[in-house]
Simulated assay, not measured.
Amino acid sequence: MSDDETQIRTLITRWADAVHRGDLDTVLDRHAEDLVMYNVAEPYEGIRGLAAYRATWPPFFSWQAQGARFDLDTLDVTAGHDVAYAHALLRCGTPEELAECPGLRLRITFGLRKRHGRWLIAHEHHSFPHD
C-alpha cells in the first residue's frame, strides 16, 4: 500500500469514527471548502460547500443518538499523484433495521484531491441499494 493510500485510509477511518461519535469538528476536518455531496437524505440535488455540508450532520447525529450505528465495514482506496477515490461499505441503521436486513450496507464513494501535501475530501456520494 502506498503512503498516499495509507494517509487516505487514515483520513476516512478517522472521519467515520467521528461520525459514529457525533464529533462535528472532526467530521468537517480535511474537507474542501467547495465540497459536493450527494446524500441519502434530501436535498436530492446534493449540497455544495462546507457550510451546507455542516448543516446536514446535526439531524443525522440526533437520529444516531437514538441507538443507530455507523460502522465502517470495508474501505478500498486508489490514489494517484494529486487525485484519489475511495469506496466504503458501512453498517448504518438502527438495531431493528440491521436485524431485519443484516446484509444492508450504506455505500459511500469519496473523491479526494491533494493540496499543499494534504489530502482533502472534495466529494462524497452516499447511497443505499433499492429493494
Rank of each mutant, 00 (worst) to 15 (best):
D23K: 13
S2M: 06
F61P: 05
G80M: 04
D3L: 04
E33G: 05
I8H: 00
Y44A: 14
G111D: 01
D23W: 11
M1Y: 10
A79G: 03
A84E: 00
E124G: 09
Y38F: 14
R118D: 15
A84D: 08
F61Q: 00
D25A: 08
A32L: 13
V27A: 03
D73P: 06
F61D: 00
A52G: 10
W63N: 08
Q64T: 03
R54T: 05
G49F: 00
T56P: 06
P59S: 04
L24R: 07
D131Y: 15
L112S: 01
L72D: 00
H87T: 13
T94W: 06
L28S: 06
F61M: 07
C92K: 10
Y53K: 10
H20A: 15
W15H: 11
G117Y: 07
L106K: 01
P58H: 02
G111F: 01
D73K: 03
N39P: 11
R91Q: 10
L106N: 02
A41T: 13
W57N: 03
H31D: 12
L50D: 13
A55F: 01
E33W: 03
D23V: 12
D17F: 12
D3M: 04
I108M: 11
A86S: 03
Q64M: 11
D34W: 01
A84N: 06
W15V: 07
G46H: 09
E100T: 13
M37Q: 11
S2L: 05
G80E: 05
R54A: 01
E5M: 08
R118K: 15
G46M: 06
D17R: 14
R91A: 09
L75E: 02
R113E: 02
T6H: 11
F70C: 05
S2D: 05
T78Q: 14
I47K: 09
W63Y: 13
S62Q: 15
T6V: 10
V83G: 08
H87G: 02
L104R: 13
P43L: 02
E124M: 13
P58A: 03
I8F: 00
P59W: 08
Y38C: 08
Y85S: 11
L90T: 03
D4S: 05
